[in-house]
Write a protein that binds this DNA or RNA. Structure first.
Lengths: 242, 242
DNA sequence: GACGGTCGGTACGCTACCGCGCAGAGGGAG
DNA sequence: CTCCCTCTGCGCGGTAGCGTACCGACCGTC
């Protein structure tokens, strides 16, 4: 299937026959919620363009991002893992578009194809790695390292230029907005990024990678290993926008 | 099957026939490594008694625990997710015993039973939730909250009294040993725990729960929902040692 | 019963980050 | 052109936890 989504574009004819008929195109505007904490996930999503965040909001209201999902996989792994829901929320962070599919149809498709399930499970492992890396990273690394890492992960999914306010970046990193301002200024002064009023541009990905902690590389390399077409995923020199 | 492990004890006769013949009893002494970063996982493990830690060691040598596994599930989820390995290490933190099974036999068993796979996938989701919660918790909560949470999670798996030095607890929490000493002293003075030279006793689990962050409850409740016999898992009033 | 190793207690200066709050700059709507 | 709102810049006092270092208490062993 012709698609920017790595899972969809890797489907064999027989796999596609199970999935395709149930796909419905969907716009993914900023802040759209794909699923909520502890509510049954009715649809899974394949993102073509843009980026979703797996958010953990604690009872006191503080929110942190624990994972990011773009065109490399699916949104709704709890459905695949037969749990139907989870205590996190998933919101669109960078707008784009994609496909959605009812959970029931998705479960039926997975039951009928071992190879399809395999691809999805491997993505799930890559996603798990990412969250596990975040757990360590959130504990040990500075704002600057984590900020650089986050921007690179975003770039791998949506390209060099995307809408993003410091306010939201602060939520992603689980820090104060003022802390992001200081850090962003540093990165800008170093010529690594540019930004103006809610729009950010990556100028020097290699330089940014030097600033980022190793968590970026570790997570990215596992994505490359585990995801169909992963060798194409996030090539630092590659241009993903035609 | 008669077992303290919730997965094993929930197996139907047909599931047991797929698993049982391949199980080999194994002692789980402190510091035993069940799998290493980026090395193929040759055996999966079912813990009967004791507790394993999923550890993330960064290139600079710092180590943090990102997840805990005891008798509620299996060690080796990357095998189930068809990824064979992952960038974390899994060590025994609290000694005990269990069973191991070659990965190949495990994969064959899972292929032959959808219900078995379902149970294992649901555990995987619960484990994923735990790691996702840790990512947020590590970012937002104080040493004291996280220490109380960790001790409670341990208690749910191994009982009220277990060997544990402050040195190791510090690694688990990703903080200095001196920081743990201060915190442990606070908890001890409050009458919540007691400890002497590498041995810790939970005196007041309810009091400890008041000190712990909500992350504890959130993770535990999802374990209860998703794991076979989960309703028995970690009942705060229950006694798990006969 | 002397010895060495492990474990826990404490102290001190330091820094990354927080909470709060305000001010200015850009941009869209009327 | 003006108004208002969003976004960014910045300052200031406060603090949790760090790095380092030292010391005493306990324990097994020979």
């Amino acid at each position: 299937m012709e698609s920017r989504n790595f899972i969809l574009s890797s489907l064999s004819a027989s796999e596609e026959a199970l999935i395709r008929p149930h796909l419905e195109p969907i716009a993914l505007p900023h802040k759209l919620t794909l699923f909520r904490p502890d509510e049954v996930i009715t649809h899974i999503h394949f993102i073509e363009q843009g980026c979703a965040s797996l958010l953990n909001t604690l009872p006191d209201g503080d929110t942190v991002e624990v994972g990011t999902i773009g065109n490399e996989g699916m949104v709704g792994t709890p459905v695949l893992l037969e749990a139907d829901r989870m205590p996190c929320q998933c919101d669109i962070q960078i707008p784009g578009n994609g496909w959605r599919m009812p959970s029931a149809a998705f479960k039926a498709a997975v039951r009928q194809s071992d190879t399809l399930r395999g691809k999805l499970l491997r993505f799930t492992q890559a996603h798990f790695n990412q969250v596990a890396q975040s757990a360590a990273c959130n504990r040990l690394h500075t704002i600057e390292e984590r900020c650089a890492r986050w921007l690179l992960m975003c770039r791998d999914r949506v390209g060099d230029d995307f809408p993003l306010t410091q306010e939201y970046l602060a939520i992603m990193l689980g820090v104060r907005r003022a802390g992001v301002t200081v850090t962003a200024k540093l990165l800008q002064n170093a010529g690594l990024i540019a930004y103006t009023r809610g729009r950010i541009t990556i100028l020097d990905p290699d330089g940014l990678e030097d600033v980022a902690c190793d968590c970026y590389r570790i997570t990215r390399d596992e994505f490359r290993r585990l995801i169909p077409k992963g060798e194409a995923y996030s090539d630092p020199r590659g241009k993903r926008t035609p």
